[in-house]
């Protein structure tokens, strides 16, 4: 089985790119692959604790929680999160926070990298 690294820089609400990234991660994990998901820039909103589901907005907290339990590694850019005013204690359980070099290290030994830029 392989390793897939996904980098997504698009916001949770306002773009469907994170929805796609999480669905792709789910499909890859179901096939037995290892998946790292790096969120940076506005993408860090994926990892914010306390998301409330509305029918009109993307809601991925439940999927992310289920997928991290199945082995998905979600890591948010620490500086990008801090710049947006959310801190370690505001981060969803199971999600890590590191600096940008973590993403490069994940790319280092990935079989495939899918980088989805921001809006």
């Amino acid at each position: 089985m392989g390793k897939l690294t996904i980098g997504c820089f698009s916001s949770l609400v306002g773009s469907m790119s994170l929805d796609f990234a999480v669905k792709l991660a789910s499909a890859a994990i179901d096939k037995g692959h290892r998946v790292d998901l790096w969120v940076s820039g506005n993408g860090t909103t994926l990892a914010k604790k306390g998301q409330k589901p509305f029918k009109d907005y993307s809601y991925l907290a439940k999927s992310v929680t289920e997928l991290t339990a199945k082995g998905l590694q979600v890591t948010a850019c620490e500086a990008c999160a801090e710049a947006r005013g959310y801190h370690k204690e505001d981060t969803m359980e199971g999600v890590k926070r590191f600096s940008m070099d973590w993403y490069l290290a994940s790319c280092f030994d990935a079989d495939r990298v899918l980088h989805i830029g921001g809006e």
Binding site: F9, S40, N42, D101, L104, A105, C107, F108
Partner: peptide
């Protein structure tokens, strides 16, 4: 217009410290 170009540069510059996650001799 967006944050993207700057994030490209800051991520690329982060290669300077990536070794902390890698084995000896490996590099990006």
């Amino acid at each position: 217009k967006s944050e993207n170009p700057k994030l490209a540069l800051t991520h690329a510059i982060a290669s300077q410290s990536v070794e902390i996650y890698l084995s000896d001799g490996d590099m990006v």
